[in-house]
Design a protein around this nucleic acid. Sequence first.
RNA 1: GGGUGCGUGGCCUAGCCAGGAUAGGGCGCUGGCCUUCUAAGCCAGAUAUCGCGGGUUCGAAUCCCGCCGCAUCCGCCA
Length: 565
Amino acid sequence: MKYPYETFKREVSEQLACAITAVYGIEADVKLEEPKGMADVAYPCFSLSKQVGESPLKIAETLAKRVEGKWIARVEAVRGYVNVFVNTDMLAAQLLPQIQEMGDSFGSQEEKHETVIVEHTSANPNGPLHVGRARNPIIGDTLARLLRFGGYRVTTQYYVDDMGKQVAILYWGATHLDMELPEHEKEDHRYVGFYQKAASLMETDESVQREIEEIVKRAERGDRTLLNEIRSIYGKVLEGMVESLKQLNITIDEFVEESRFIFDGSTERVIRELEKSEYTGRDGNALYLDMEPFGVHGRDKRFYITRNDGTSLYATRDVAYHVWKGEQADMLINVLGEDHKLEAKFVEVALRLLHKKVPETIFYSFVSLPEGKMSTRKARVVYLDDLIHEARERALAEVLKRRERDDKIDHIAHHVAMGAIRYNIIKVRAEKPIVFKWEEALNFEGQSAPFIQYAHARCCSILRKAARTPSQVDPHAEYGHESERELVKTLARFPDVVGEGVRNRNPSAVAEYAHELASCFNAFYRDCKVLGSPEEEKRLVLVAATRQVLRNSLHILGIEALEEM
RNA sequence: GGGUGCGUGGCCUAGCCAGGAUAGGGCGCUGGCCUUCUAAGCCAGAUAUCGCGGGUUCGAAUCCCGCCGCAUCCGCCA
């Protein structure tokens, strides 16, 4: 895929490299900057100054005179920088037809013929998702969308821990406790009561603890009947969780149960292979991996692979899962909470020892509440469903301020609400901690999804009212207004944003860009009358292009590009 | 104790990987803009020792070292 802004930048680099060689006789590695406001691209002459012993100001002056080309509108030498401005008419002439032709795929990258599995969410199905956990599916789903746009073939997986303690507690509760369950239309909210009660009983009652441990042991030994029973309980909870995700426009391609790697013998094989390693040792009968040689330091450098009785541990089964997963795709990416860093390191080391594919991991920091860490047991928690409900109410109220009740109103309110939730989470980089605040999560103004959706709706509104949509883009159209030119340049940067986002596995960059584009369009909207203007025709082309790129950005973010609001 | 991540106006955040010019946004605050394509918008204004201290460099929010604060991990749990 050839994008025009790239061509422009390449021309500038080549021109500069050429000029440097001609004047100073050096092969220079021309690294361009894209400073905001100063120029479209700039070349600082300071390091060259050192090499050739001439002042940066002088060099900039000299080079500026020699840089020219059809993509270059203007070159200036300012304080040791060569500042280059793109020819926006040339850019528009190349870019706008391309956006029109490529449509929904504008900005995407060439098919890479590589398959990727993005594992995300993978929460224990013992109760409803809370806002903290929701960061995982939002990052995971957006990343998956971004990678798809970046040319990868992506599938998503949710690893279901169906034989762990959490699910065993839920199962014990559901089968032993006779209790009044809360009224709720979703099963995850009803069943979590069993989990909570059982978990607190387990702390005080040793016999309960023993029974739960026994369930775990039986599950680990591959008791199919029991595992089926357990599934019949957690399955309902999981369904509820999946339903919440669906509200947010998140679906997961495949659910993989942990017990599968007991049944197929792969966990056992992992253990047998690892015990041959020089890095593993025995503590009694328990097998462990010494993590010290792999840069892990702390109170205890041993990471256990089996218990004293030879049974596997969660992390060991996770290794088996990754061995299997690695056979399904060229590349593996996991989205995990930062508390899983050590476990992920262990999985990575184990996979290296087994000569298997190692996953990349995106770690995200926790979402806390102003009053502290989220905790289901301390009832200090905001459930995702409560946020969804609240967001929808609030969105509906806002829509009702602006339009009469009609058949579109629920659709609009729903997508404003879900967009706001997704955007609020994804706009912050994964490694930053988030303190959840209702007023921020339900913000529909400023840097938010509704702001972007609104700009999109404005585009749609103009295009709807236009007498006709120009089918052909006039290649000689000139965009004289500053706001038009800024818009053209911002549109042209979209493919770069996608490329960088893919390379850095950073979906937040797309969120940032979408806001910038919407904001840039709002300036155009303010300054440039479209309908009824003598420049209507060419401005409609620009509006259509903006609508398309906003739409593509929103698509990556998993947010509905609303046509009306 | 050790590892890892984070620390940018009152609050939130981009920029950090690949060091460059007046640190870009948003919320909130003050004041202004709807007979004109949707005011979920726009304009103007106030607010910043880029956690602290060193170092490298012509140049550091960005790289290196030390310190402080917050988070997280260091279970034969998951």
